[in-house]
Structures are given as C-alpha cells and as structure tokens.
Design a protein around this nucleic acid. Structure first.
Lengths: 143, 143
DNA sequence: ATTGAAAATGAAAGTTAATATCATAACGTG
DNA sequence: CACGTTATGATATTAACTTTCATTTTCAAT
C-alpha cells in the first residue's frame, strides 16, 4: 500500500473541513509541490500567473495557508522580511545552511543532532514536536 | 584585565561611527542590557517610558538597530510576527526551546550539537559563522 | 440539465510592524 | 555663546500580511 500523495493528503484535509476542491487551488498546490526551493508568495503568484493569469494574490495566499495548516508546507523566515514556504519532502525533515554572502541555501539531515536535541529537551522537561536549525556561514564559492 | 562592559562596547562603536552618546540612548541601552527575556520594540518602549515618558518609538527603534549592528543584541523572529531582541549573554551563545502552548521560552547550550553542526557544514563546503537552533514542543506544565 | 445553498475567487481595503522623513532640540567644540 | 553636527519625536511611508465583500463557481439534489 502506497503512502498517500500530497494531493491526496490535501484532498482529505479539505474534506475534513468540508471545503471544496477547485481547479485553481489544485493548480496552485500542484505548482508548489513541484518546487524545491523556498518560495515567497509573490514568487509563487508570478509562477502560477504565467499559466493562469486570472489567479489572484488572495487565492495563492489562502492556498498556502491551507497547505501550511495541513503540514504540506512550512512557513519560514530567513530574515529577509518575507515569509518563504518550504515544500516538505516526503522523506521527512531537514535543516538549512545559508550562505551569508550569496544567500545560497542548502539542506542537510543529521540524525545525531536530532537525537541530541531530544535528549537536551528532555532534561528541561520539554517534549519536542518540531525544530528549526539554521546554520549561517560562507559557502564554498564565497569563502 | 577585565572584558569591556556592554556599555563600553557600545561607546566604542559609537565613536567609530562618530555618533554621539546621549542620555536617552544610554538609558535605553542600559534598560535593555538588564533584560533577560526576548523583548519586542513595543515592550521595550513601554518599559523605558515608565521612567522617561518623553522617549519615542523611533529612538528605541534606532537604539536597537545600533545594538544589533554592534553585536550586543540579536534580532529574532519566533513566528509571532514580531521581531524580538535578545540580550546577548556575556558567556556566549545559546539556543532556545519554545513551548507551543504557553509560549514559554527556555535557553540551553549544548557543546556537542555545535560540534556536529561544524562537522556537517564542513562536509557541505561551508564555514559556519553563526547558527540558530529552536526546538518547539510542550513544556513540563503543558504536557 | 437545472437549481440553489455553500464555498471560492479577485480586487480592494484594512492591518500591522518596520523604516524613513523632517522640523526642531540638544550637544559639544571652538 | 554661536555654530555646525547629530539626536529626537511625531508623523508619513512602505511592505507584507490578512480580511472583506460582491460576484462567480462548485456540487449535490433534483
């Protein structure tokens, strides 16, 4: 039995809230799911407008809010004053390393770090649900 | 030989930019240095106004920008749509664990995590300058 | 296919926090 | 104390986010 696709997850979520699936919403979501960078609302709006000029900012905004609510997107702030949405990968969580000169963003995973985090939290009486780890520095091109 | 106090660091920074030290600015900075939470501009403004009602938002804003520039404060976004300023402790860096129910913020340090971060970055060809680690979960009161 | 209630849409308005502007005040050096 | 410089507070502007509302679309029940 396959894991449900993102589109299917979205559909279930909409049903649960008795919202309707619409062509526009599906198109925006589908466009977002194909993206592997951290995209802002304006950027996503521009992208969907190229194929579907009638789409407005509000619909993109509302779609991204939905995706965020149902865990298919993550809203992040990297410090440039804009919320950027991350397309959550099927293979789970990852962290970011950001070049402070050229703004290149790379992703990484480190099981050991996650483990240490859980331990640290436990000591403080916390139960960790999620986390955010961002490393800032110079990439190979900018050293 | 003692390490310079934060006030002294600020004074040097102002001199270097040929800016003047003023009573208001000093008072705002001093008030901020005594704070051990993550304070927003509005909160800080309210605080300084209690002793010095004439102070305006703009001066607090500009002072915090200065402190951020010279490394005495860190501007952070915890996701509530407001920038919060952290009073950098003398004993160096720490990370945060945030309760997603009551918003309590605790700080912690973990040398091992930092070490793993540096290693991970190296593999990707990055040189780490700073980092941000935030754990989100439930604190002991909210579990 | 038609209908009608419910939800979606886009344009525009409203909100909020951050930042810039500007006339006036305070500073400090000669 | 006079002058040029910098600081200040009020206000205006900006930018991103969020809501509102009149209209359109959807979908289930005819």
């Amino acid at each position: 039995m396959n894991a449900p696709s993102k589109m299917e997850i979205l559909k279930s979520y909409l049903e649960a809230k008795s919202l309707k699936a619409t062509a526009q919403r599906d198109f925006i979501a589908d466009t977002f799911f194909k993206i592997n960078t951290h995209i802002s609302l304006d950027e996503l709006l521009n992208k969907v407008k190229r194929k579907n000029p009638g789409i407005g900012y509000a619909t993109v905004y509302r779609t991204m809010r939905l995706l965020t609510e149902c865990g298919l997107a993550i809203a992040r702030q990297f410090g440039d004053g804009q919320t950027r949405y991350e397309n959550l990968p099927q293979d789970g969580h990852h962290d970011h390393i950001i070049c402070i000169r050229c703004s290149r963003i790379e992703e990484f995973q480190n099981q050991k770090i996650e483990q240490l985090q859980a331990e640290t939290a436990k000591k403080l009486g916390f139960t960790v649900v999620s986390h955010k780890l961002e490393l800032y520095g110079y990439c190979s091109d900018c050293t």
